[in-house]
Design a protein around this nucleic acid. Sequence first.
DNA 1: TGCGCACTTTGCGCCAGCGCAAAAAGCAGC
DNA 2: GCTGCTTTTTGCGCTGGCGCAAAGTGCGCA
Lengths: 248, 248
Amino acid sequence: MTAHAEHLAVIAQADIFHNLDTPALRSVMAYAVAAHYQEGEFVFYQDDPAERVYVLAEGRLRLLQLTPEGAQINMGLVSPGQAIAVISLLEAQRYPVSAQAIGSALVLSWSRRDLHHLMIGCPQIALNALQELSQRMIEFQDRLRELTTERVERRIARGLLRLARQAGRKTEQGVLIDLPVSRQDLAEMTGTTLFTVSRTLSQWEERGIISAGRERILIRFPHGLVTIAEDLPAPHPPPSEKPSDSQV
Amino acid sequence: MTAHAEHLAVIAQADIFHNLDTPALRSVMAYAVAAHYQEGEFVFYQDDPAERVYVLAEGRLRLLQLTPEGAQINMGLVSPGQAIAVISLLEAQRYPVSAQAIGSALVLSWSRRDLHHLMIGCPQIALNALQELSQRMIEFQDRLRELTTERVERRIARGLLRLARQAGRKTEQGVLIDLPVSRQDLAEMTGTTLFTVSRTLSQWEERGIISAGRERILIRFPHGLVTIAEDLPAPHPPPSEKPSDSQV
DNA sequence: TGCGCACTTTGCGCCAGCGCAAAAAGCAGC
DNA sequence: GCTGCTTTTTGCGCTGGCGCAAAGTGCGCA
C-alpha cells in the first residue's frame, strides 16, 4: 500500500529523514510503501535478498539472527523512528537478520532504487543514515566489549538498563519494561542461558531491585542495577517492600 | 601536511571514494591532510573529541577499546583503503576506540566540516561510506553471535581465518599472517585469555594445521581451521610434515 | 657472545555458569 | 473451574576455560 499524507508526520520524525525541507519530505513520501504487521509476523527474513529499506513508524520490532545450528539470538530492538536494513542500499546483499513484529507494527519502506535516487537528490538523507548507523555501531562495539570482558551478572544488568532506555515506561512503582520480555529473550540478548537469567533476576528480586513476573519486568530501584552494571561498591540497600530483614 | 598529487591514486582506491569522477577526486584531495605514523603511535585516542575522518593509505592500524577497568580489547584491524572514525561526521561525538599504527602507516584525513561539505556536493561519497559501514556492521553482528553462542576453540579458529583474510600472504608453506600477532592479541580478538589461545594453538600445531612462532602464525592447512570453525566432522588429517605418526 | 626483555608454554587448582530434569506457577480458552 | 500450554524456578552435577606461578624460548642489542 502506498503511503498517504497521514504518514508525512511519521516520516518527518524518522531519524533518517531529519532536517529535510517539506518538498524533500514529500518526495520521500511519494516513494514510500506502508505495511502493517501483526504480532509475530516477519517484516523480512535473514538471508533473503535485501531489496528494501525499512523505517518503523509504530510498534516495535525484534531483530533476530539464526546461528548455523538453528539457535537464535536477539540482536536488538527497533523503536519507532529507526531505520533498518540499510544494507539493502547495496546491490546483491542479503538481510543479515530477521525482523519480527512485537505486537502490531506499522512499517514504511523504500526500494533500493528509490531510496538511492532520493539520497542522490538529497544527500542529507545519506548523512542521516550514516549518523544512525554510526550510533548503532558504537552500541555494538560496547556489547562486544562487555561480552568479552564482563561477567554474566553485569551483562544482564546492562541488558536490562538498555531495555529500560529503549522501552521503559515510568510508573510510580518504578520503570516498567513495556514489552513482553521472557527470561529466554534476556538470555539471548546478554549471551547466557535462561536458567542463569532466572536465577539472577530472582536474586535481584529478593534484594528489592526489581520485581519480575511472567514476561514482565519492573525496575524498582534503577540505581541498584547501575551499581551492578558499573561494579560499584554496593550503595544503600534499596528501599525494600518488606519491613526489615536486616533488623530481625 | 596537505596531500599532494601523489595521493590522488590512493584516494581513488579508497572504498569511500569509489566511483567518483576526476574533478570530484581532485576536490577531495584538496581537503585531505596526510600524516605518517611510526610503529605504535596513535592516530587518535578513544574518548577524544571526534573531529576528523581518516582513510588508511599504507600500512595497518589496530583498533583498540579500553574497558573501564583498564583492560584493553582489540576491536579490529584496518587495512589500506578503509575509512575509520566516520563517527566524526557527527557533532560533539568522541572516538569510540583508539587507532594505533602497526608498523609504519600513511594516513589521510579530513575535518568534519570539509568531508561534510564534500559529501553534500557529491552524495556518492556518503553512499560509499554507508556501504562500508554496513559491511562492518555485519561483521560485528557475526562476531557478536559467535561470542554468545560458540565455544572458544571455534572462535579462535574464526579469528584466525578472519586475520588470514585481512592480512594473509600466500606462501608455498601455506598462508602466513603478515603481521606480528601475539597470543594476547588473538585472545583479545576472540574474547578469551592468552593461556587458552596458547594451549589451543599448540594443539593445532601438533595436528599440523598451523605452525606458530613468536608473534608469527602460518596456516599450513586452512581447511582444517574451517573444519573447526564450522564444526564439521574432522576431514582428512592434514598433510603433516612428520613422516607417519599413524603408521608407527 | 651473552644479557635482558617480552612473549610463550605448561601444570595445577578452581569455580562461574551451563545443562538437564522435574516441578511449579501463570495465562488463555472453553 | 478445568485443561493444556508456556514460562519460570530450583536442585544437582559437571566441566570448559580462567587465573596464577614458574619455567622456557626466541629476539634484539651491546
